[in-house]
Write a protein that binds this DNA or RNA. Sequence first.
DNA 1: CGATTGACGTACG
DNA 2: TCGTACGCCAATC
Length: 114
Amino acid sequence: MNPNQKPDFFEQVFQVVRLIPVGRITTYGAIARYLGSAQSARMVGWAMNASHQVHPQVPAHRVLNRSGCLTGKMHFDEPNAMQSRLEAEGIMVVGDQVQDFERVYWDPSQELAL
DNA sequence: CGATTGACGTACG
DNA sequence: TCGTACGCCAATC
């Protein structure tokens, strides 16, 4: 990376994603909104794309879209990895869609509410 | 430098 | 209620 280690939007996203508890998930929009870029949910997804080469391990598999669908499963080393990890954490996934989405949903602006 | 795409979300039909 | 269209911001072609 560049020596200009300013508060990158990407790093901000990684930080929040890492705070997601096991067995819980969140959405791109929720993270974007928490960072103040509510209308830049796409940037969150873009950041996730870089999360593979970043820091320890960013639980990108815990980040889904507003529908609770595993939109980014195809971007993992193996499309099956995302669902497998979610199921391993107790999250039921059927048809690339998370079950009990509302129950496992974790909102940073709510849990990390300032 | 300009056009297109993208791990999304909201609005409209 | 479901399907389609448009908007945002940044990176890549």
